[in-house]
Design a protein around this nucleic acid. Structure first.
Lengths: 162, 162
DNA sequence: ATAAACCCTAAAGTGAACTTTAGGGTCAAG
DNA sequence: CTTGACCCTAAAGTTCACTTTAGGGTTTAT
């Protein structure tokens, strides 16, 4: 019953297997994502099969864009599968997908604006005095939402002395 | 000569014009991006026309994805246009575009992997015990690069006591 | 003249995911 | 028996772009 002859890994061995740092593993522990199965007499962390699976799960979840906080939640889902529905889990990924869509959209906008700048410039060896990139960045109307009150709003009149 | 009757804005007025916080303006100053033209007798920051232009430049540059550090560099380019070439400036935007391309690529990969998970799941009200999303995240081979040495590497043998 | 609205500085906090530092035990090899 | 590789903890630092806090002057309207 208390006989266990399963493999156990010290933190450095686990780190090497997954190509991450031991500090990261300790950090994951501090965040409640990956607890060692036990400690040796001298206090060394000993990880078992479960740790390999958890770490694998963490890596996969990271790869699809989940934050550590979200991964913690997903690990809980996975641990208590029976308490949750497919609907819940699917919804969780749907929300993440929307977030990622938003980022893609934002970056695509940036890329397009940036590429417009890029194409506008000759890129030659002449001085940038008339560089159209700098001109465009300095222009007041790439996107006009700053033209309210520039002429009419109150300003502080500065009279020579002061 | 020392007679100047240009408009000057106090920090709160400038903040309102650009719809940002006064703290942000002070932060930009601390980062060397936006210096007030002068100070009033009581130490209030007074911004002039130049500040409006700089802030406008900052906003445009932010919108296309430049960091504040990079914007500082761009402002320097803009200030000393004649010292730089179109080639330099164009190169600067090209590098940024590559970075953004990389991000888009990364996020597209995430989206695709995530969507694959999404589509695999029935999303029903039944328990998640066999949820294919959780199964996929727990699987060891979504992307096989962790199969080296799992069976052969050294492990710590743990014998009942200890 | 007083209260509200505004301004100032310096320093610390935020969040994410780690990394680094400092100081100190443990274990295997030679 | 000591050296080097490995492990431990607690706490602070990193990056980015701000925000918040604390404590205190100034200006404006009434």
């Amino acid at each position: 019953m208390s006989l266990m002859n399963a493999k156990h890994y010290k933190i450095g061995q686990l780190a090497k297997q997954f190509d991450i740092s031991v500090e990261t593993l300790r950090y994951y522990e501090s965040e409640g994502l990956l607890l060692p199965e036990m400690r040796s007499a001298s206090g060394y962390r000993l990880y078992g099969q479960q740790a390999l699976e958890t770490l694998n799960f963490i890596n996969h979840a990271k790869r699809v864009g989940f934050s550590l906080k979200e991964i913690k939640q997903l690990l809980e889902f996975n641990l208590n599968k029976s308490q949750h529905t497919c609907e819940d889990i699917k919804q969780y990924t749907a929300i993440k997908e929307q977030e990622i869509d938003k980022k893609i959209e934002d970056y695509l906008k940036m890329k397009s604006a940036l590429n417009k700048l890029y194409r506008s410039c000759c890129g030659g060896k002449e001085s940038a005095v008339y560089c159209s990139i700098l001109q465009a960045l300095a222009a007041e109307d790439i996107d006009s939402d700053i033209d309210s009150g520039l002429d009419t709003k109150s300003g502080v009149e500065e009279k020579s002395g002061e």
